[in-house]
Design a protein around this nucleic acid. Structure first.
Length: 638
RNA sequence: GCCUGUAUAGCUCAGAAGGUAGAGCACUUGCAUGGUAAGCAAGAGGUCGUCAGUUCAAUUCUGACUGCAGGCUCCA
């Protein structure tokens, strides 16, 4: 038997017998290690413990504590769940069952519908499987053997998958009576798993294709310990509490109406106040960053959308035309053509560039009814849009500037964890303008690196008209939201035949960059609401302070304090209802108002105020002016 | 759009073998002027999402539609 050479993480080499399994090697390194081994990593690929090693490789043992082990756990959980489902429905056909962030799922084709009521039964069946401590048995088959095996079982989805597999041999895993096509890796046995819970069931298309069969997908979550599981379930609870749709009802933020139409948002006074503050800050910052602001119409004639190409490529997302005097007008799904028309209304010189034109532009897009979600996904929304027209030489600097600007906005709104995704040339743009693509992609990459952002490449994720950067921001619950997008566009400049006169006196094509920093105000507002759980920081809070006189006799003094607060530009209100002070404090607390100014005989006498902070903290007998000075009522540079 | 649920007062939710409904909060009024998360009492408020079907009778059963929810696909 020949030997192979494995390179361990510490740089040492280990000679082992060819054909030894990952587990054998772990054993060789140390029996303690073998005990805690969950899988191996061979040349960076997660590999099952039972896999024989056939050639020299970088070798690493994945132990219980690593994140990769958690993936293995969850993937194994998916098999255990599938086994439980097979016990309940022997005719079940199986789709796929991977591990995902925070859990796992499995897709089933079943003779009956699974509902949440079935979870308890399936869970206890899973418990039994775990208790039985059944081994996961790995077996290698040829493609023919595998096809034969699953065809006999009537597992048509597995057969379809195997047909497309090129790797030989094909591996299957057996757990009790459940045999699944699977690359692995898996645990040694089902008993090594402890904390799990089934969460939900939903439909999902086979292979994500809406023309294919609809399968039933059961989602579950699992962790190494019950404690971690509980922490995750608590987080889900917390997310429910923070749901912007729920908070909207509690705080009076927005509404939608069947009579108006789905996905169309009515902003109520409190949300409108917040939006006003956001917009005011946004506009001020844009002027500071060298932008000009534009206002453009909501509709435009068909010829505009023909030129832009939207009627060709984007019509599915556009609403039917409106006939005006025999001409077809379309509601705008994007603002760019209008900005381009503004550009084209004059002859432009290279001396005019760059032009940075921004607009809070409200657009309308047809979104499938099933995707609508609160203010996060709607049919009418306002983008914080801008278009930058520049020379090719200016491009890199402009990108850099946009990123920096975006980061400063996110910081201002209280978000600090940001990740960039560099979307490169897609297959459909293949061949064309390679040099341009490379240049622009390079500029985007350099900007990301210069800003010190965490990032990864989204290979082929760019639009057909140019590469882009998307920024995802992480909220207080650790959830990621895609917000900022910065996109190159060589298509529209061409279609609209945009030009500028260069230093050489000749016409040149400008570069165009689309960008939205917050994304859309509706979506941003939803994220902001959930991030702060409705307890907006003072500068954003619709009501910043409420004045609460203890009893009627204190109203005159309270009015005086209210006037002073308002004079200082603070959004303050007064609650003179005849409820007792405890009740009014409760009301203010439920409305998450940052400051309660409580005034009674003592305060009136000494011309002081008592402040109750939103967190319950109480500061008695403060000087009003000193209190006012202690709070950031507005972002410094508004 | 597709799958699975779901729809009762402004909100959160009960409810009936098919005989037109109830609580808490909110709201209105009265009493109480009360120092840090719900004072007391009374009152008002619903064609039980819409339209059909079955039935002597439908808010309850059936179907369609619409909205909403969780997913899938798509996306700011």
């Amino acid at each position: 038997m020949s030997q192979i050479k494995l390179k361990l993480p510490d740089g040492q080499f280990l000679d082992v017998k060819k054909g030894n399994t990952v587990l054998d090697v772990a054993e060789q390194i140390g029996s303690g290690l073998a005990k805690v081994a969950i899988a191996g990593k061979v040349d960076g690929v997660l590999t099952d413990l039972r896999t024989p090693l056939l050639q020299d490789a970088d070798f690493e043992v994945v132990t219980k504590k690593s994140d990769e082990a958690l993936e293995v756990y969850r993937h194994s959980m998916a098999h255990i769940m599938a086994y439980a489902v097979q016990k309940k429905y022997p005719d079940a056909k199986f789709g796929i069952g991977p591990s995902i962030e925070n859990g796992f799922y499995y897709d089933f084709d079943l003779p009956a519908k699974i509902t949440a009521d079935d979870f308890e039964e399936i869970e206890s069946s899973m418990q039994e499987i775990i208790k039985a401590n059944l081994p996961f048995e790995r077996k290698e088959l040829t493609k023919e053997e595998a096809l034969d095996f699953f065809e006999k079982k009537g597992q048509k989805y597995k057969v379809e998958l195997i047909r497309e597999l090129e790797d030989q041999p094909i591996t299957i895993f057996r757990l009790g009576d459940f045999v699944d096509l699977c690359r692995g890796p898996h645990m040694k046995s089902s008993g090594e798993i402890s904390a799990f819970k089934l969460l939900s069931v939903a439909g999902s298309y086979w292979r994500g294709d809406e023309k294919r069969e609809m399968l039933q997908r059961v989602y579950g979550t699992s962790f190494r310990t019950p404690k971690e599981l509980k922490a995750h379930l608590d987080m889900l609870e917390e997310a429910k509490k923070r749901d912007h749709r729920k908070l909207s009802k509690e705080l009076g933020l927005f509404s939608t109406h069947e009579e108006i139409g789905p996905g169309l948002i009515i902003w109520h006074p409190n949300a409108s106040r917040i939006r006003h503050v956001i917009e005011a800050y946004w506009k001020e910052q844009h002027y500071k960053h060298g932008y000009e602001l534009l206002y453009t119409p909501h509709i435009g004639q068909s010829v505009l959308w023909e030129t832009s190409g939207h009627l060709n490529y984007y019509q599915d997302s556009m609403y039917s035309p409106i006939d005006i005097d025999g001409a077809n007008y379309y509601l705008k799904p994007m603002n760019c053509p209008f900005h381009i028309m503004a550009y084209k209304s004059e002859l432009r010189s290279y001396r005019d560039l760059p032009l940075r034109w921004a607009e809070l532009g409200t657009v309308y897009r047809y979104e499938k009814s099933g995707v609508l979600h609160g203010t996060m996904r709607v049919r009418g929304f306002t983008q914080d849009d801008a278009h930058i027209f520049c020379t090719p030489e200016q491009m890199a600097g402009e990108i850099r500037e946009i990123l920096r600007f975006s980061l400063s906005l996110w910081r201002a709104f209280g978000f600090s964890e940001i990740k960039a995704y560099l979307a490169t040339k897609p297959a459909k743009a293949a061949g064309k303008d390679n040099e341009k693509w490379e240049q622009a992609t390079e500029a985007l990459k350099n900007a990301i690196i210069a800003e010190g952002l965490d990032w990864e490449v989204d290979e082929g994720g760019g639009a057909f008209y140019g590469p882009k950067i998307d920024l995802k921001i992480r909220d207080a619950l650790g959830r990621e939201w895609q917000m900022t997008t910065v996109q190159f566009d060589w298509n529209l400049t061409e279609r609209f035949d945009m030009t500028y006169i260069g230093a050489d006196g000749e016409k040149h094509r400008p570069y165009m960059i689309h960008r939205a920093l917050l994304g859309s105000l509706e979506r941003f507002f939803g994220v902001l609401t959930e991030h702060y759980a409705g307890a907006f920081p003072p500068w954003l809070a619709p009501v910043q302070a409420v004045v609460l006189p203890i009893a009627d006799v204190h109203i005159p003094y309270a009015e005086k304090v209210l006037a002073k607060l308002r004079n200082a530009g603070i959004r303050a209100s007064i609650d003179t209802s005849d409820d007792k002070i405890g009740y009014r404090i409760r009301q203010a607390q439920l409305k998450k108002i940052p400051f309660m100014i409580i005034l009674g005989a003592e305060e009136a006498e000494e011309d002081k105020v008592t402040v109750r902070y939103r967190n319950g903290e109480n500061k008695k007998m403060l000087d009003l002016n000193e209190f006012i000075d202690s709070v950031e009522w507005r972002k410094a540079d508004i």
